[in-house]
Design a protein around this nucleic acid. Structure first.
Length: 270
DNA sequence: ACAGTAACCTGTTTGC
DNA sequence: TGCAAACAGGTTACTG
């Protein structure tokens, strides 16, 4: 479900909803998602305030002075805040706050992660992550170009590799490549420094705009509070196979790279 | 070491 | 209409 803009949107919503609130209890409906949920460790957070909710890559971190709850939404994870909770299918745990509200984690496909991080420590989940694309000092054209020299894969696979740069998933990979004028199947070895420059700018630009518009709602992504994102209106190629390219009118092509659908315009992207 | 594929799940859409 | 296959915003574990 969520790429960087969606996770960032969720993060901002959660800060409005639970920042400063004290955790009273955590109730668990099942013992595992993609990982085994360390229930006992997580219960150490009870009695402590959520200082803030941060984001690293596509991971959310609920920080307290007694450690943090780490969460990855996988494809279908959502948080919803309720005063009088109505149980829904696929509710897996809920954070109960002293103000009477509950923050409930729902995840049908259970590709999500819920883990505990001790105070001041890192987590194995965060170890191999590449730079944040929105931080210009760390995600530079030269950096990307150096990786293009070294690796042997398509440029789309490369920018979706979280070790290379975090936060770019299947939607924004296609969109960035369209904006940069590079076909997704191009071998990264054949991507010039100049193209890397355009690509870095495109990635940063598209992620930034998507955040401004509250993310992309294709199917079931919702902002905190339940409203949809609006960025889907701005998608140039993703999900538009057969439609006319907004720039040149050629039909948008559909193909697959690394088991994922790719969308591109053969005229605008070389 | 690296790249490509299967696997983890459920729900929805597509095609016969 | 019904059923089965294909597909979905992600990541890891395996294979060669």
């Amino acid at each position: 479900m969520p790429e960087l803009p969606e996770v960032e949107t969720v993060k901002r919503g959660l800060n409005e909803q639970v920042k400063g609130e004290t955790l009273e209890n955590i109730s668990f409906r099942r013992g595992n998602l993609r990982n085994k949920i360390p229930q006992k460790k997580l219960l150490k957070l009870c009695g402590h305030k959520i200082e803030n909710v941060n984001r690293r890559a596509k991971y959310l971190l609920f920080n307290t002075s007694a450690g943090a709850l780490l969460n990855h939404l996988g494809m279908t994870g959502t948080w919803r805040l309720e005063k009088t909770p109505t149980e829904r299918k696929h509710d897996h745990l809920s954070l109960v706050f002293t103000n009477g509200f509950q923050l409930i984690y729902n995840d049908p496909r259970r590709f999500g992660i819920v883990d505990y991080i001790s105070q001041g420590q890192s987590s194995p989940w965060l170890n191999h992550l590449g730079p944040e694309p929105l931080v210009a000092e760390v995600f530079t054209p030269g950096y990307l170009w150096a990786l293009c020299r070294r690796r042997q894969t398509s440029i789309k696979n490369l920018i979706m590799d979280q070790r290379v740069v975090v936060g770019v998933g299947n939607i924004y990979a296609s969109e960035s490549l369209f904006l940069a004028g590079v076909r997704p199947g191009t071998s990264c070895r054949r991507v010039s420094l100049e193209k890397c420059q355009r690509l870095v700018e495109a990635i940063r630009g598209v992620l930034g705009k998507a955040i401004e518009q509250g993310g992309t709602t294709i199917k079931d992504f919702r902002q905190a509070g339940g409203s949809e994102g609006y960025f889907q209106q701005s998608l140039h190629v993703y999900g538009r196979a057969g439609e006319a390219c907004s720039q040149c009118g050629s039909p948008i092509r559909l193909g697959r790279h690394g088991q994922r659908s790719s969308f591109w315009c053969s005229h605008c992207q070389k």
